[in-house]
Design a protein around this nucleic acid. Structure first.
Lengths: 251, 251
DNA sequence: ATCATAGTCGTCTCCCTGACGATAAACAGA
DNA sequence: TCTGTTTATCGTCAGGGAGACGACTATGAT
C-alpha cells in the first residue's frame, strides 16, 4: 500500500472541547452560541481549527485557555488548571455540511469557576446542565435521538465525554479535578453525587476516600463553609489510580 | 471564533490499526514491512488514507479486511469477525516527515487465524509478539525510548493499544474476541494469561467466569483438544460489561 | 496399569462494602 | 442560654467476593 503524497483527500482538522464542571450540585458543560450558519443561533461545543504547526493536545489546550482562561495539565501537577485528555475523533462525511472535517474531541474537567464566562465572550458562552444539553432531562423519551439542542454531532460528543467522566472517576482520582485546591470530604462527595446523579452514604464515602492511600492528603486546616461541624481540608494526593475503585451504585 | 472555510491548513487523515491476537500463549500484533521511504524496510502498523466519502470506522474496517480478511463487528454480533474500536488520534507535526498527517488509530482484537498472513501480502506482513515490537523484552531498559523497531510513532500507538486491551478485558467480556466461536474455560484463561502476562489460578478463574451471569453460555459439547480431561465448550454470552470485573493480579 | 495433564467442585479466611447507630462541633433562632 | 438543625466523623455488624489451596475426575501417553 504505497503512499502517494499527491493523491489523498484534504481534510480540515479541528479540536472540540467537552468542558465539564460541577455547579450547584449539577454537572455542567460549557456551551457557546453559534454566530453563523450552519446551526446559527444554536449552542455548540467550543472548538476550532488545529493550526499548521500545532500538536493536537496543544490545540486543545489553546482553545481551553481561550474559552475559560484555564491552563491545562494532563496528568500530574495540581495547579489552578484543568485536567485535559483526548476523548475520541469524529469524522463522518457530512457531519459538517460545508466541508470534510475531522474533529478530535477532548475532555476537560475544571473546578467551579468564580466568573463562569467572564473571561471570554460572555454573552455567547455559558455553563449549562448536561441534561439540558443532551435532552435527557424530565422530557419524556419520545423521540430517542436529536433531542439535543446542540449543533452538529456535538450531542453525541458531549454524551461520550460525560460517560467518560462518569466512568473515570470510578477508578481514578480525577474527581478532585472538579474541586478547588483544598476541599472537604463532603465537597468531594457532592462531586461524585453530581456526576453520577446518585446519593451516597456520607459515612461509607468518608471511610472509603480517607482509607484509600494516596487519594487525599490532609492540608491541616478546617472549614465550615458548608455549614455544620467544621470539616477537615484535604488536597489531592499523588495517586492517580484508585485500587480498589470507587463503586458506582447499581441500578 | 468564526469559521473561515478558505483558511484552514489541509491535513491528510489516515487510519492505523493495532490488530492483536493470541498465538502460542503470547500476545501478538500484526505488523507490515514498509516498502518505501521513510523508514523503508522497517515494520509498521497497517493503515492507510481515509477516503473522501468514508467514515472513520468504515475506513478502519476496510483496512482490517484488506490486511486480514476479517470482517469487523464493533459491539454485538459474535460472527467470525473481529472486534474493532477507535483507540486514539495522533497528529504531532512532523510525525510523518512528508506531510501533515493525522492518524486515527483503531484497535482490533482477533482470534488466532489459521493462516496468519496468507490472505494479503504474505511476505510483508506478520504476527509478532508485542514485546518484540515494543522493545520491552529481556533487553535491559538502558535507553528508555525508541527501542521499538516500529516506524513513525507506531511504537507509542501499539503500546496504547496493548494497554487498552489489557485494561478492557478486566471489565468487559472482550477477551472472548480472542477466542474461536466455541472455547473452553481453560482457553479463555490462557487468553487472560497471555494478555496480562501473568499466571492465574485455574480453579478461581473457573469459578469466576462461570459465575458471572451472561459472560459464558454452555454450547453443550466438550473437547479434549487441550489434552487432559474433556472440557465443556462455551460461547460468548450477551453480557458486554462484567460486574464485578475480573481483577488483574497486583504487582 | 501407571502417570501426566487438564478440568471441575469445595472449603476457609480475609477484606471490602452496604446499612445504619452514635457522637461531635458548628450555627440559627426562640 | 438552650434547643434544634446541619454536617462531619467514628463504630459495628452482616454478607459477598476473591485468594489460597485441597480433592476428585476424566482423558491420552508410556
Amino acid at each position: 500500500m504505497p503512499y502517494d503524497p499527491s493523491a489523498f483527500p484534504p481534510f480540515a482538522v479541528t479540536v472540540d472541547l467537552v468542558v465539564l464542571t460541577v455547579r450547584r450540585h449539577a454537572l455542567c458543560a460549557l456551551a457557546v452560541r453559534r454566530g453563523e450558519e450552519p446551526y446559527k443561533g444554536m449552542w455548540a461545543l467550543p472548538g476550532g481549527f488545529v493550526r499548521a504547526d500545532e500538536d493536537l493536545a496543544t490545540a486543545a489546550a489553546r482553545e481551553l485557555a481561550e474559552e475559560t482562561g484555564l491552563r491545562a495539565h494532563d496528568q500530574e501537577s495540581r495547579s489552578p488548571g484543568a485536567h485535559l485528555e483526548q476523548l475520541a475523533t469524529y469524522g463522518d462525511p457530512g457531519r459538517d455540511p460545508r466541508m470534510r472535517v475531522v474533529s478530535v474531541a477532548h475532555l476537560a474537567l475544571a473546578p467551579d469557576l468564580p466568573s463562569p464566562t467572564a473571561g471570554g465572550d460572555a454573552r455567547s458562552a455559558r455553563w449549562a446542565p448536561v441534561e439540558a444539553l443532551l435532552g435527557t432531562g424530565e422530557a419524556s423519551a419520545q423521540d430517542s435521538e436529536s433531542r439535543s439542542p446542540l449543533a452538529f454531532d456535538h450531542g453525541e460528543i458531549l454524551a461520550a465525554g460525560v460517560e467518560r467522566a462518569r466512568s473515570k472517576i470510578e477508578y481514578s482520582s480525577l474527581a478532585t479535578a472538579f474541586c478547588p485546591p483544598e476541599f472537604t470530604v463532603g465537597e468531594l462527595r457532592r462531586v461524585y453525587e453530581a456526576v453520577w446523579g446518585v446519593v451516597l452514604d456520607p459515612r461509607n464515602f468518608h471511610r472509603k476516600v480517607t482509607g484509600t492511600p494516596g487519594f487525599l492528603v490532609p492540608s491541616g486546616g478546617t472549614t465550615t463553609r458548608q455549614g455544620g461541624r467544621p470539616a477537615q481540608l484535604f488536597r489531592a494526593g499523588g495517586a492517580t489510580l484508585l485500587n480498589p475503585p470507587m463503586l458506582r451504585p447499581e441500578v
